[in-house]
Measured scan of single mutants.
Amino acid sequence: MQFKLIINGKTLKGEITLEAVDAAEAEKKFKQYANDNGIDGEWTYDDATKTFTVTE
């Protein structure tokens, strides 16, 4: 399945997509990506659109 991450950071904004088996795997990958890029914020997930959002 394809999942999307919307980044609303203080210095980094944008979207990325990835393939994952389920939402838990996608969340783990997205949070690792955010951590690697210094993004720390409030996370939400919309199951209907398979979209994660992180807002700093």
Rank of each mutant, 00 (worst) to 15 (best):
M1C: 04
M1V: 11
M1L: 11
Q2C: 05
Q2R: 15
F3K: 00
F3C: 02
F3V: 01
K4G: 04
K4E: 03
K4W: 13
K4M: 09
K4A: 13
K4D: 04
K4V: 06
L5H: 00
L5E: 00
L5D: 00
L5K: 00
L5N: 01
L5Q: 00
L5R: 00
L5A: 03
I6E: 06
I6P: 00
I6K: 11
I6D: 02
I6Y: 10
I6V: 15
I6Q: 11
I6R: 12
N8E: 10
N8S: 11
N8R: 12
N8W: 05
N8D: 04
N8T: 14
G9D: 03
G9Q: 08
G9L: 15
G9I: 10
K10T: 06
K10H: 15
K10F: 13
T11L: 13
T11Q: 10
T11H: 05
T11V: 15
T11W: 07
T11S: 09
T11P: 06
T11K: 11
T11D: 04
T11F: 07
L12D: 07
L12T: 07
L12Q: 09
K13R: 12
K13V: 11
K13C: 04
G14V: 12
G14S: 12
G14Y: 10
G14E: 04
G14F: 10
E15N: 14
E15R: 09
E15S: 06
I16Q: 08
I16A: 07
I16W: 09
I16K: 09
I16M: 14
I16Y: 15
I16L: 13
T17W: 14
L18F: 13
L18M: 08
L18D: 04
L18W: 14
L18H: 10
L18I: 14
E19K: 07
E19I: 04
E19M: 12
E19F: 13
E19S: 12
E19G: 05
A20I: 04
A20N: 03
A20L: 05
A20K: 02
A20E: 13
A20T: 09
V21M: 11
D22C: 03
D22F: 06
D22M: 05
D22R: 03
D22H: 13
A23R: 15
A23Y: 14
A23K: 04
A24K: 08
A24Q: 11
A24S: 13
E25V: 13
E25D: 04
E25R: 03
E25T: 14
E25I: 14
A26F: 00
A26K: 00
A26T: 01
A26M: 02
A26D: 00
A26H: 00
E27W: 12
E27H: 13
E27N: 07
E27P: 00
E27C: 07
E27K: 10
E27T: 13
K28H: 07
K28F: 10
K28E: 07
K28M: 13
K28A: 10
K28R: 10
K28C: 04
K29S: 06
K29H: 11
F30V: 10
F30G: 02
F30K: 00
F30P: 00
F30A: 04
K31Y: 05
K31E: 03
K31P: 00
K31H: 08
K31G: 03
Q32A: 12
Q32M: 12
Q32T: 07
Q32W: 04
Q32L: 15
Q32S: 15
Y33G: 02
Y33M: 05
Y33L: 05
Y33A: 03
Y33R: 03
Y33E: 02
A34P: 00
A34Y: 02
A34K: 01
A34D: 00
N35G: 10
N35R: 08
N35A: 12
N35Y: 13
D36R: 10
D36K: 15
D36M: 14
D36Q: 13
D36H: 14
D36N: 09
N37Y: 10
N37M: 15
N37Q: 11
N37K: 10
N37P: 01
N37F: 05
G38A: 12
G38P: 02
G38H: 06
G38F: 10
G38D: 05
I39D: 01
D40R: 12
D40M: 14
D40Y: 12
D40G: 14
D40L: 11
G41A: 02
G41P: 01
E42S: 05
E42L: 10
E42A: 12
E42M: 07
E42Q: 12
W43H: 01
W43N: 00
W43A: 01
W43K: 00
T44W: 14
T44H: 15
T44I: 08
T44F: 11
T44M: 12
T44R: 11
Y45N: 01
Y45S: 02
Y45M: 02
Y45K: 02
Y45H: 02
Y45E: 01
D46T: 07
D46R: 04
D46I: 14
D47C: 10
D47R: 04
D47F: 09
A48R: 04
A48T: 14
T49A: 12
T49G: 11
T49V: 09
T49R: 15
T49M: 09
T49C: 04
T49H: 10
T49N: 11
K50C: 03
K50H: 11
K50S: 14
K50Q: 11
K50N: 11
K50M: 08
K50P: 01
T51Q: 06
T51G: 02
T51I: 07
T51H: 03
T51R: 03
F52R: 00
F52W: 08
F52C: 01
F52M: 02
F52E: 00
T53Q: 06
T53D: 03
T53E: 11
T53H: 09
T53S: 15
T53I: 12
V54W: 02
V54I: 06
V54L: 11
V54H: 01
V54D: 00
V54C: 03
V54S: 01
V54A: 03
V54N: 01
T55V: 09
T55R: 14
T55L: 13
T55S: 13
E56Q: 13
E56F: 12
E56Y: 13
E56D: 05
